[in-house]
Design a protein around this nucleic acid. Structure first.
Length: 574
RNA sequence: CGGGGUGUAGCGCAGUUUGGUAGCGCAUCUGGUUUGGGACCAGAGGGUCGCGGGUUCAAAUCCUGCCACCCCGACCA
């Protein structure tokens, strides 16, 4: 490609809307443009990177005998009603109607549609296992789209679905995908961790997430530095414990606490540790009001709560002032587990039952109660674990101290079990002619998000530093002065030779000053730069690897060897 | 959904307090000089000031309704 022809609108200044490095750089490098919030167009350079990642995904999926197909993004509501997710997916689903008022959605994921397409044709155990995938645009009306390609409402995803005879087959397929994913993200150059995930709206049992590490990542994970335990913070088992305290249960006491609402304020007021309080959080779940008691020094894990309540996540809301007043009889800040309205359901984290003489809200404005005790003063439904894991908690596997880290979820694998096959009646006949329900798996790679995640890990002050495997072009030939005949000639010659060897190369033939060309080359992150300058007539060029300081003055032939070298270093074919 | 902020040329911004003919830098176009790290000189083009309503002789500026975009929070009891 000649740069003079390339549609690459780079920006000197950062658009004010961007926050993350990946977002800023994708915009500045002319790789994407925003259409509306959370929806982007991929420009030529950006789209080349997308396709590079897609092809890596494609190759690794094909390697495990998954077959590519392509489905419509638009889906009829009927199938979603059959699985129950027309309701459960909630407001994240883009919905629309056709001219006959029939309901559709823009597919946020495709379990139903894949199940539907095979259920009519796959009828025998001989046709299983089966693994299908597609690379396609997905739609989710995110609460808050942000960070460019990281959290969009329209994004490119690879989704694979596996169909097996039994649980064992499903697990086999699961671990095959796991391995394939490790290869995919390794080839993309990513530093990633595989962690246990929550299956959430997807349903099913086991699930793992592939997290590309990043300090500004949206997903928080807990991991054990000693053993292999790692999980998202939502999923992580919280092993925090309280030893049964010994000693007398003291008489409870009503204390005037004017305008003292937060745990911080209370700690100061009572001059005791936050672990001596029990906080009561009030939630609204559809028409029901739910109160939850947890130790004052800990945070609630809403995902665990949602699971216990058996409702979709979007139906759980923190109660507003009015509901709190109705449920507790007090203003916000004084809720407690005693004397709640009858209708209020009370859940208690198991640690609370082992605490002694703690402080709770009195359900009366400006009052708390001292020396409260579970069992004597109030009772509720005891739940083993409702807490969010924290750095410093013990590993549930080996008792070492857990660490926390951040990253972006670029892939996930799920064991779905029979949730969809049952609902949509995907069955087959076994050897005995008996009808059986298929076991399914669902496996996603966020292609566009992976591109953003790569930039998060590969950039410097000057721009992107693409790994060779996903770079939009491998080499850029910078002709310093296009007015100099010998420079243009050498540039053209190298351009042709590299092209003929299948190297993807940009020739910067623009009549710009050298500085402009260098800045652009660095911004768009081409891994290898060959500068053709003053010594062109001696067949000498400059060889630079993006992100490294080293500049070599070598002959054009040596430059070829160097390029070959770089390819081999990354396990690519020259 | 709640809170905050912003909307003026492709990008970054000033102008709004105190109403009076729309500005700056970068980018773009023309001519010239320049050519190894985002050049210089001269000239030019480009705006329904987010949209609607109102006040006024006069509105980017004041009032009002809406919309869009960004940030923070979904952490508090």
């Amino acid at each position: 490609m000649r740069m003079s022809k390339l549609y690459m609108p780079t920006l000197r200044e950062v658009p004010s809307e961007a926050e993350l490095p990946s977002h800023k750089l994708l915009l500045r490098a002319g790789m994407i443009r925003k259409l509306v919030s959370g929806i982007y167009s991929y420009l030529p350079l950006g789209y080349r990177v997308i396709r590079k990642v897609e092809n890596i995904v494609r190759e690794e999926m094909n390697n495990v005998d998954s077959q590519e197909l392509l489905m419509s993004a638009i889906q009829p509501s009927e199938l979603w009603k059959q699985s129950g997710r027309w309701q459960d997916f909630g407001p994240e689903m883009f919905r629309l109607r056709d001219r006959n008022d029939r309901e559709f959605c823009l597919g946020p994921t495709h379990e139903e549609i894949f199940t539907d397409i095979i259920r009519h044709e796959v009828k025998s155990y001989k046709q299983l296992p089966l693994s299908l995938y597609q690379i396609q645009t997905k739609y989710r009306d995110e609460k808050r789209p942000r960070f460019g390609l990281m959290r969009c409402r329209e994004f490119i995803m690879k989704d694979a679905y596996t169909f097996d005879r039994d649980e064992e087959g499903m697990e086999r397929a699961y671990f095959e995908m796991w391995k394939a994913y490790e290869k995919i993200f390794t080839r993309c150059g990513l530093d990633f961790k595989v962690v246990e995930g929550d299956s959430g709206a997807m349903g099913g049992s086991d699930s793992h997430e592939f997290i590309a590490m990043s300090e500004v990542g949206e997903t928080q994970i807990a991991y054990c530095p000693k053993c292999d335990y790692a999980a998202t913070d939502e999923k992580a088992v919280c092993s925090y414990d309280i030893h049964e305290e010994i000693g007398e249960e003291l008489e409870k006491e009503r204390v005037h606490t004017p305008s003292i609402k937060t745990i911080d304020n209370l700690v100061e007021f009572f001059d005791i540790g936050p672990d001596k309080f029990v906080k009561t959080l009030i939630f609204k779940v559809k028409d029901e009001v739910v109160a939850v008691c947890i130790p004052g020094n800990r945070e609630l894990n809403e995902v665990k709560l949602v699971k216990i309540l058996g409702v979709p996540e979007h139906e759980l809301e923190l109660a507003d002032e009015t509901i709190i007043k109705e449920a507790t009889g007090a203003n916000v800040g004084f809720a407690g587990p005693m004397a709640l309205r009858e209708k209020v359901r009370l859940l208690v984290d198991s640690r609370v039952t082992r605490m002694k003489n703690f402080v709770i809200g009195a359900n009366e404005t400006d009052y708390h109660i001292k020396n409260a005790n579970y069992g004597r003063d109030f009772k509720g439904e005891v739940v083993e674990d409702l807490l969010l894991v924290q750095e410093g908690d013990k590993c549930p596997k080996c008792d070492s101290i857990l660490k926390m880290d951040r990253g972006n979820e670029v892939g996930n694998i799920f064991q779905l079990g029979t949730k969809y096959s049952q609902a949509l009646n995907a069955t087959y006949l076994d050897e005995n002619g008996k009808e059986q329900i298929m076991f399914m798996g669902s496996h996603g790679v966020g292609v566009s998000r992976t591109v953003a995640a790569i930039i998060e890990q590969y950039h410097d002050d000057n721009g992107i530093i693409w790994p060779l495997s996903v770079a939009p072009y491998h080499v850029i030939i910078t002709v310093v002065n296009t007015k100099k005949e010998e420079q243009i000639q050498l540039g053209e010659r190298l351009y042709k030779e590299l092209n003929s060897r299948g190297i993807e190369v940009i020739l910067d033939d623009r009549n710009e000053r050298a500085g402009v060309k260098f800045k652009d080359a660095e911004l768009i992150g081409i891994p290898i730069r060959i500068t053709v300058g003053k010594k062109a007539n001696e067949d000498t060029v400059e060889f630079v690897v993006r992100g490294k300081d080293e500049r070599l003055e070598i002959s054009s032939k040596e430059a070829f060897d160097k390029i070959k070298n770089e390819f081999e270093k990354q396990g690519l074919i020259f």
